[in-house]
Design a binder for these strands. Sequence first.
DNA 1: TCTGAACATTAGGTTATACTAATCCCAAGC
DNA 2: GCTTGGGATTAGTATAACCTAATGTTCAGA
Lengths: 229, 229
Amino acid sequence: MPAMLRDAPPPLTRSVEDYLKAIYHLSAQGGFATTSDIAALLTVAPPSVSGMVKRLSETGLIEHVPYRGVQLTAQGRRAALRMIRRHRILEVYLTAQLGYDWDGVHDEAERLEHAVSDDLIERMARALGDPRYDPHGAPIPTPEGEIEEAELVALAAAAPSTTLELREVGTQDPARLRYLAEQGLVPGTRLHVVSRQPFNGPVTVRTPGGERVVGLELAALLWCRPEAE
Amino acid sequence: MPAMLRDAPPPLTRSVEDYLKAIYHLSAQGGFATTSDIAALLTVAPPSVSGMVKRLSETGLIEHVPYRGVQLTAQGRRAALRMIRRHRILEVYLTAQLGYDWDGVHDEAERLEHAVSDDLIERMARALGDPRYDPHGAPIPTPEGEIEEAELVALAAAAPSTTLELREVGTQDPARLRYLAEQGLVPGTRLHVVSRQPFNGPVTVRTPGGERVVGLELAALLWCRPEAE
DNA sequence: TCTGAACATTAGGTTATACTAATCCCAAGC
DNA sequence: GCTTGGGATTAGTATAACCTAATGTTCAGA
């Protein structure tokens, strides 16, 4: 019997899927994901992470540099992107087809992403017309594991009198999401930066719904694409 | 702090949910579910069942008579019916909204039933117009845990020259379900029993699609409601 | 009435995942 | 170039599920 067929790789467990996703997000800006960051994100104790890291690097899903942190291997990255695709397709589906709000959809998707089959995800994607972004504007990886890498700038860092398109909202916190939606600050909105107060003050933007004053904490979550001239 | 709030009952694990469902189905005709029947249904070894049975009776979900079998308590029955509602709503949803066939929908629902929230189930139910039967004709429990108890007769036991409505198909086996659908033998179909061969021979029925000869194995799975005169 | 087959249970071990407590490493500041 | 504090790791324990092997129980028929 050929080796390829002999031992089918055991399917990943829920925990493993969660760790890979966490590591993907934490090492997105190129660096290492540290033990304590992973522990904080998954709300487990650091020793639990050390243990899992050992197993994951033995199975070739991550690369571990002791006392430094971990990074995904190509295989681990594929698995993480598969989970992210599932999560984001689910978020779009629940929002578009079952009346969920963008601030309530995360938890449901978080549980379902481990249970749905690839087949079901692709049926949902087809029913939705193969969406490219989730309700928060985050890009959805393709079934082949490609993901769009956009060059976005945080509103907090934008220069006054530039015009931007709000592309992605970098939080899942329901309270923040609800407030942003009330202010009309959702992906796709055009923003003109009116002014920026000194000493880490708020940013004032003009939106189709009127002028809005956005505090720095929120402005740091609003990722925008500079408008082409 | 009042006792009711002090220790919220820990949510049931996947395994527990599966055991309760299995026990519900096995003790449906009023009797005890035996260790080996449960083991066979869940494809685990009998000692695993003994272990789980001990835990479940300690937590008050089942009543255990050693060497005899188990039955659900009122609390266990509620939990089982909740799972059955989830399963059947999911089956209807996947069939009606996402193009699943009635022979392929079982496995997907089996995994999802543990992951969906009650809220999502009720949203699906509402989107479907609160269906009362799943694609196989089985009744769907209400959110309050009521389930219709119909008096159905197996086609295998029906007298010749009676007229019946096929109500429920008692299998989840894809091959059998596919064949039955090809023959037009789906819930809702009106059947007239033309004849019954002796010596456990097949049953001949007239359907809107023409005459069909149904072997005894399949006829035992076709649960029918005698037509009112 | 006894006995053996079939079924149920106990005993003891494995794996995955988590925890706390104890120890280890390393880099930053003196 | 030492010390020290905080993050990382190891050690040891717990729990939920599962397994195989050994032992117990029941009942039907010789």
